[in-house]
């Protein structure tokens, strides 16, 4: 290590701070800087994105909620997220459970195919779907958006759920059988309660990913826009400070979801 770094290290050490800690702090600052800027500017009174801000105001928020485009964007995003979550949770759970419990010779291939969409950029999935819907002469709508979201989020759901299922001790089911439980009872009383939290937690990942998705949605969107696309159109047209407000709301939403997941799902046995 160069002498400069060694000297810096020593000076920090004297204050009881490690070089690593400093780095971590800086990096975290870097990660949250744009979000902080966003939040700050959302309260800026002036319409100009100059720094520093001149006054505080809630006008952008008022404007946001008054705009029907934004509120319908929020609703559209919610709708897509929930439907995607439901589909992925059903389909994905079945797949993950089968592969985990009853491994067969082709299960590696199956897992590979399920995870494949994650290896591609959203661009390719998006244009493939656009082309596909075009060939089928299907009108683009929230439904087509949902298809894209399902394909996009399924691999992540599967990964997270599989990881948690791996921690499930099969001896618990044996114990239930030993106690006298038939297959249905065993599933109802032991298996389901134990994997349910894992499924819900993985489903929340899907919700978060879908809520945020842009690159695939861009190609499969019809008349109704989801929230990220609303932001896009506003940002494109002009320098629109209300975008900061929308952005802040998205951050807030994300915070809530993550906290909620933590509080209610954290206590799980898988």
């Amino acid at each position: 290590m160069s002498t400069a770094v060694i000297r810096l290290r020593r000076r920090l050490r004297r204050r009881g701070i490690g070089l690593l800690r400093v780095y971590v702090a800086l990096l975290l600052l870097f990660l949250f800087l744009p979000l902080a800027v966003l939040i700050v500017f959302s309260f800026s009174a002036s319409g100009q994105l100059r720094f520093p801000i001149t006054g505080l105001s809630l006008r952008w928020y008022r404007e946001v909620f008054a705009t029907s485009a934004v509120t319908s964007g929020i609703l559209a995003s919610l709708e897509v997220a929930v439907v995607t979550g439901a589909i992925v949770a059903t389909v994905g759970t079945l797949a993950a459970v089968v592969v985990q419990r009853y491994p067969f010779r082709g299960s590696g291939v199956v897992t590979g195919v399920i995870l494949a969409p994650a290896a591609l950029p959203g661009l390719v999935i998006g244009i493939a779907l656009l082309n596909f819907f075009g060939d089928l002469h299907l009108t683009l709508s929230l439904m087509t958006v949902t298809v894209g979201h399902v394909i996009y989020t399924l691999p992540y759901f599967y990964l997270v759920l599989s990881a948690r299922l791996r921690r499930f001790d099969p001896a618990l089911e044996e114990a239930a059988t030993d106690m006298g439980a038939g297959p249905v009872q065993r599933f109802r009383l032991v298996t389901a309660p134990l994997i349910a939290p894992a499924i819900v937690a993985s489903a929340f990942v899907v919700l978060a990913l879908s809520w945020d998705e842009f690159q695939i949605t861009f190609f499969t969107i019809g008349d109704q826009s989801t929230l990220p696309l609303v932001i896009w159109s506003r940002a494109r047209l002009s320098i629109d400070p209300s975008v900061n407000a929308i952005g802040t709301l998205m951050v807030a939403g994300s915070l809530l979801v993550v906290l909620f997941t933590r509080r209610f799902i954290a206590e799980s046995y898988t």
Partner: peptide, 15 residues
């Protein structure tokens, strides 16, 4: 599940 025997496992298998 239909046998009149019960097993205590080596690992903890309490639900």
């Amino acid at each position: 599940n239909k046998r009149p025997v019960n097993l205590v496992f080596q690992r903890v298998t309490l639900f």
